[in-house]
Write a protein that binds this DNA or RNA. Structure first.
Lengths: 328, 328
DNA sequence: GTGAAAGCGCTAACAT
DNA sequence: ATGTTAGCGCTTTCAC
């Protein structure tokens, strides 16, 4: 089923059909009607492959993220979707599974479709991936993180600063024996940066991290619970627990409540991300809003504007004290 | 940057370059090396648009789902990804936001890229969407649900039967005053089917649903908590709460525990889906595993096999009693 | 307002 | 083992 078939059915040239279906140029209302009618009855679906090759235009934006299971990224995609709504552009998602080799392949695959732009999560990539991004000749934006050296444009927060800011909040509230609970995966560069920022922030206040614990696998209530139990059994003197993500913090919160601990006085907790699904826990966890929807929206806006900048857009995460930290 | 450039740089024909880059046909090791070298130094990325047009092959599988925010669908995608791993095929995701008009557009858009197959969530579509799916000339599989009339192949569970089975489990455990808590959106056809099956299952045991409550918006702990509070204030005699999803059930569980209710004796709870993140709640919620990863895997296997069947593959959800129902 | 010709960058099929 | 030719289904450009 090609343009030719529709053209024959409507007794016009392929060119006229093409014009009608793209609302381009002048076509008389009568002809236009005939063409629509023919296309509809034949069930014609245009071949975008041919169209893209001929016009050298592909209205797709490639989006490369580590995973869809981590709720952070669906939220970024939501922001992207919002900004692209009403434009010609459509997002196409690929996942790297937190593996830079895999990410390189996905970027290669995406660029081979000649998209109108590329959004990639993070600043850590293989050299080959960076080279491809640099030579893409379309807007490329790295999102989530601004602690590093972007290939071109970047939109995100400083995770190092977020960790540091959280340390300041905790110290200001009088907590002293502080533990960190996070992922052992070095692939989660952003969590690592928060961890380092956190340690640095504590150090500025003359405090050393009392203990820390790391997990393999996925975050979740069970993971948070187990880590918390293990850490508190090892170091019962802790009066604050800082988690790499709210999902783990929620598990820790439930554990501490079950044990009858007095939150936030005996022990305080904080996480990261500000996940809406967790509203409704017995207490609201102290956290920082990672601005992920805004990040997606801003990145997509650069695609729409077709901007080939290397501007770095730093957003500020917002501290949300919730109920699990003492007031200052 | 085209094949031509690489061919010139390596002093061979475009055809030879094409063969090398696709590992096709016989090329001498010497030539092969020269070509790779040229491609690499030039940073050549093949143009899949042109390749697809010429070969009439697109190694993409379109996947149309309602949303990425509902954790059900990332899990389906995970199953699809697993089955496609190691094949030529790549998934491309589009979302309909639970809107059939939007779904129709997404399907149209996907088909216009001439994918090797199409996976669509649900059995409810516009007539135009059904027509496109029927005429696609590639494997089309509807997933999640088998209660209805599939266009072609289908892989899923019977949500009607799932609701009915849950009713049987609850009745067998001696609960009598049963409430349902779900979504008011008629767009969530599968939850509606569970609801109807549940009512029918209770009716078979001579029981009428004592009360029910519906929410707008997204599921989550807060939603589950509020619905539960409202329902129990209205009908304090309820001894069982059946939720449309585990996320809401979790909110309900936390509410009931806070109120000091004796679970599962004074009141029982059950949800649907079996979300792994929720392992770690104070009690494991009774639920049914919606088999979503298996569904994704099976559907993708049909794509790999390039099967144009209209087979309906019905999977059986597994009942998981957890800690929130009495033992039988 | 409509049509004819050329060609986008590849690959299939057929040489050699 | 390598090259040549034709053409995939559209859009661009130019002609009428």
């Amino acid at each position: 089923m090609t343009l030719r078939d529709v053209a024959d059915a409507a007794s016009v040239s392929e060119m006229t059909v093409s014009r009608v279906l793209r609302n381009r140029g002048d076509v008389s209302d009568k002809t236009r009607e005939r063409v629509f009618e023919a296309a509809r009855t034949l069930g014609y679906v245009p071949n975008k492959i041919a169209g893209a090759l001929a016009s050298n235009r592909v209205n797709l934006v490639g989006v490369v993220i580590p995973s869809l299971s981590n709720m952070v990224f669906p939220d970024v995609l939501h922001g992207i979707g919002e900004a692209l709504e009403g434009t010609e552009l459509q997002p196409v998602v690929g996942t790297s599974q937190y593996d830079l080799q895999q990410e390189e392949k996905v970027i290669y695959e995406m660029l081979s479709w000649r998209p109108s732009g590329l959004i990639v999560a993070g600043l850590e990539h293989t050299d080959a991936a960076r080279a491809m991004m640099r030579n893409a000749c379309v807007p490329v934006v790295e999102v989530m993180d601004v602690d590093g050296d972007p290939v071109a444009a970047a939109v995100g927060i400083s995770h190092e600063a977020a960790g540091r800011a959280m340390a300041a909040e905790i110290v200001a509230r009088g907590y002293k024996n502080i533990g960190y609970l996070g992922s052992s995966s070095i692939a989660d560069a952003r969590a690592q940066k928060r961890y380092r920022g956190f340690e640095a922030g504590l150090a500025e206040a003359g405090i050393t991290l009392a203990d820390s614990i790391f997990y393999d696998g996925t975050s979740g209530f069970g993971t948070g619970r187990k880590m918390t139990q293990a850490l508190l059994e090892r170091t019962p003197t802790l009066d604050f627990l800082y988690y790499n993500t709210d999902m783990n913090a929620a598990g820790g919160l439930l554990y501490c409540m079950e044990k009858g601990m007095d939150i936030p006085n005996e022990i305080g907790l904080a996480g990261f991300n500000s996940f809406e699904v967790l509203d409704g826990l017995p207490m609201r966890i102290a956290t920082m809003d990672s601005q992920r929807e805004t990040i997606g929206r801003r990145a997509a806006e650069l695609m729409v504007a077709n901007e080939l900048t290397d501007e770095v857009m730093r957003l500020e995460p917002e501290f949300l004290p919730g109920d699990t930290v003492r007031s200052r």
